[in-house]
């Protein structure tokens, strides 16, 4: 089985941990995120005939108090950038993280996951803004940790890219 290191990144409280909580195998407590700054989970997906063991490094959300440790991204095969559709600044943070990662790690597969699609009425992120990103070759997946919408799709899509 092929293993891949996948990082989950995004602003604080965008729903990274909730997003994957119901879909991954976990043995570590969430407190590792606030202490060590990362919690490692595992998600096995199928790509064609091949099983891919995705080691998910769920990094502590970035905010004004804590920055993402770039050393945790070393050796990553891809990453999910998670933004909260109801908070526009989380998209800015995600894009900023993307630039930082490209500078430090290089260009690796990436998917932008816009979470909380179940609260579309409260969204602050403009559809046009996301469309612009899509036209610039961003792969964008709308998800809901509450309903499970788009979660499997996000992992599946990233797995296809990294294999």
């Amino acid at each position: 089985m092929i293993q891949k290191k996948i990082c989950m990144l995004g602003a604080f409280a965008v729903g990274k941990t909730s997003l994957v909580g119901r879909f991954v195998r976990s043995i570590f407590s969430d407190k590792y995120q606030t202490t060590v700054g990362v919690k490692i989970d595992k998600k096995i997906v199928s790509v064609g005939d091949e099983q891919v063991n995705m080691m998910l490094w769920d990094l502590h959300g970035e905010d004004e108090f804590q920055k993402v440790r770039m050393s945790y991204l070393r050796g990553a095969s891809g990453y999910l950038l998670v933004a909260d559709g109801t908070r526009k600044d989380t998209l800015d943070i995600a894009l900023s993280l993307h630039e930082t990662i490209q500078e430090s790690v290089g260009t690796i597969p990436c998917i932008l996951v816009v979470n909380k699609s179940d609260l579309s009425d409260d969204w602050e992120i403009e559809k046009s803004e996301l469309d612009d990103l899509a036209t610039n070759h961003w792969e964008i997946i709308y998800s809901s940790a509450k309903s499970g919408e788009g979660v499997e799709e996000a992992f599946q899509s990233l797995a296809r890219q990294v294999v």
Partner: peptide
């Protein structure tokens, strides 16, 4: 324990 997760966490702790 799940060895591949443990190995990842060991690496994370070293980086930390």
């Amino acid at each position: 324990q799940d060895a591949d997760m443990v190995s990842g966490m060991l690496t994370a702790i070293q980086d930390f």
